[in-house]
Design a protein around this nucleic acid. Sequence first.
DNA 1: CGCTCCCGTGCAAACGATTACATGCGCCCC
DNA 2: GGGGCGCATGTAATCGTTTGCACGGGAGCG
Lengths: 340, 340
Amino acid sequence: MDRKIATIQDVARTAGVSTATVSRTLSKPSVVAPATREAVQSAIAETGYRVNATASNLRRQRTGSVIVLVPNLANPFFSQILAGLSSVLTPAQYGLLVADTQSGPDPDERLAHYLTSGQADGLILLDGTLSPEVLRTPGRPPVVMACEWMGSDLPSVTVENARGAEMAVDHLAGLGHRAIGHVTGPRGNVLTETRLEGFTRGLAARGLPLREDWVLEGDFTMDSGAAAARAFLRMADRPSALFLSSDEMAVGFMGVVQAAGLRVPQDVSVVGFDNIEMAQHLTPRLTTIRQPRTRIGESAAELLLGLIDTAALTGPSDVIEVEFIARGSAAPPPSDRNLG
Amino acid sequence: MDRKIATIQDVARTAGVSTATVSRTLSKPSVVAPATREAVQSAIAETGYRVNATASNLRRQRTGSVIVLVPNLANPFFSQILAGLSSVLTPAQYGLLVADTQSGPDPDERLAHYLTSGQADGLILLDGTLSPEVLRTPGRPPVVMACEWMGSDLPSVTVENARGAEMAVDHLAGLGHRAIGHVTGPRGNVLTETRLEGFTRGLAARGLPLREDWVLEGDFTMDSGAAAARAFLRMADRPSALFLSSDEMAVGFMGVVQAAGLRVPQDVSVVGFDNIEMAQHLTPRLTTIRQPRTRIGESAAELLLGLIDTAALTGPSDVIEVEFIARGSAAPPPSDRNLG
DNA sequence: CGCTCCCGTGCAAACGATTACATGCGCCCC
DNA sequence: GGGGCGCATGTAATCGTTTGCACGGGAGCG
C-alpha cells in the first residue's frame, strides 16, 4: 500500500490534528492534552511514521552528529576510545561520524574542512599532531581533545602519563634495579614527552642516574620496539630493566630479546604502558600501566555534550587516572638474585 | 563582521545573480556562462560560503552518510575494516556513521531502527548474528554484509575462510603432522563453521583422521585460547599440531603452553588465522592465514556505493582471497625430528 | 453576568538548498 | 525581415519539520 514513507502531514491528517500538534506530541508531550496525545500516538503507529532527521535538523539548525578525527583508524588503540564515545553519544541521540585524518593529503586542511563544513555539532580530536592555529576559525563548533596537545587550552581528556611513567620507574627501583632504560615514542609527541618527563622524575626521586644512551627513541609500534631491542643487544653496558612507552613496543622488544636467547625477566625486566589485552597473555605476562581507554572516550563525549548544551567553546577538562599492574615481566635484577 | 555563516542567498546577492545560478555553478558548472561562473566563484570566496549539507540533503532526499553496524567497537578486529570503509567513503563524499550494536539492549531492534530511520543512504553490517527477517522492511536502504551471514542472499564481502583453513591443514600435513587438532570459534558463528569445514576437508584430502576430542570450542578471544591450552595440557593423547581459528586464540594458547614448559614449535606446532600485527612479533613468530581486513572494508564500501548509485537492493558480492604465511610456530612433529 | 486568564490547538513562516519550468535574448536561415 | 531555435538565467515550488504567534473557548472570580 504505502509505498512512500509517512510524513508528519500524513500523521496529522490521520489523527485529525495539525502538524504542529504532532510535532509537539513528540517533543513536548506535556503541553498537549492527553486525549489528543493518544490520538496522535495511534496515528503514528498506524502510519509507521518516523521523523525525518534531515528536515528536523535543518529546521533546528543542528546536525545531530559529532565528528571524531582519528589519525589512523587502522590502529586498534582508537577502537576502544570509539567504543566509549559511542556508548555516550548513542543514548544522547547523536550520531558518531568518524574521519581518518591520514586518508587525505593534508590533515590540517581536513580539520579546517570539518570545522567550517557545519556537518557536525561538535568535534573530538584524537590526533595530537594537528596545528592549533586551525582552531581560530570564527563560528566553529565546540571541540574536545581526547589526547594531549601541546600548547592548547582546549577542553580535553588526558591521562596521568607522567605519573604512570613514575610508577613504572618506582616499581623497578623497588625491585632493586639501578640501571633503568627507556624507550620513548616519537619525539615531539606529547605522550612521549610527558612519559619521558615522568621517567626522569622517577629516576631523580630515587636518586638514580639518567643515562642518555639508555634512552632509545621508538614510535609506539611493535616494529620500533623490535628495533630498540636490537640496539639494546648491541650495547656493551646494558640496563637491567626497561620502561617502554607502549605495550606494543614492549611486545616487539620482548620478541627480539627472547629470540636472542635472553630471558625476561631473569636477564632483563620490562614494563610497558597501556595494558593492551594481549599483555596478560604474553610469556611472561607483561607488567604495565593501565590507561582506561573506554573511559577516555566516555569522558570526551560527556565533555563535548556539555559544551554543545551550553553553546560554549570552553569548559572543564578531565584527567583520567592510571593504574600500575604488576605481572611477570619485571623481577629483581640478576645481581640481586645472585645475592639472594 | 559576518557573524552568521553565508547562505546561498548571500552569494547570489553578492554576485548579482539568482540562487539557481549559484547552485548550478556548484553542481553543473558547464551549463553556466564562463563570465557568470567567475563572478559566482569570487562571490563564494568573498562570503566564505559553504553549502549547507543538511538543506542540500533534505532537498535531494538523501543523507550523504552510511551507517556501519559493528558488534563490538572495542574489538580491534573492526578498526582496520573501518579504515578501509573510510578510505573509500570519504573521497566519495559520504560520511561514515558508526554504531555499536552491543551498546543497546536489543541488537536486532537497533538494526531495525537504522533500517527505518532514514538516517543513512546505506548500511554496512559487520555483525553476523543479526536476524535476516529484520531486512524485510519495505522501502529500506541498500545493505551490504561485510562478513558471512548464514542464509542470506544479501550482497556481501566474504573471505575464503574454508580455503584458508584447508591451507593451514595442508601446511601442517606437509610438515609431517598426522595428529592435528583445531580450536574453533563459537558454535553457530559462520566463520567458525566455514573454517571448521575447511579443516575437515583438509584432513580428508590428506587422508588424516578427524578426532572429535581434538576439536575444542573457543570464541576467538585470547582467553578462550588460553582455556583451550589448559584442555590441551590435560589430554592424555595430544595432537602434535593445532590450527586455531583466530590469531588471538593462538596467542592465548601459546602463552599457556609455554608457561607450562612446552616449546612451540618443538613440542607442538601452532597455526592461527588472521595475521594480526602482533603475529610476527611473538616468540616464535606465528604461522597464520592473512585476511586483508582493509580490503574487506574497501570492497564493502565499493559494493554499497554501487547499490546506492543504481538504487538497487541486490548486486554483486565479493570474495577476498586469503594468503598463507609460514613463520616459526609450525615445524615438523617431534617424531620426524627424531628420525631426521 | 461579564471580564480575564490560561490552556490547547492551528496557521503559517521559516530553515537553505535544488530544479522543473518559464522567460528573454541573440542568431540563423529561409 | 520574420519566425524559430537554443542558450543562459530567473522564478518559484518543494523537501519535512519546528515554533512564534494568534485564536477560541472554558473556567474562575468579582
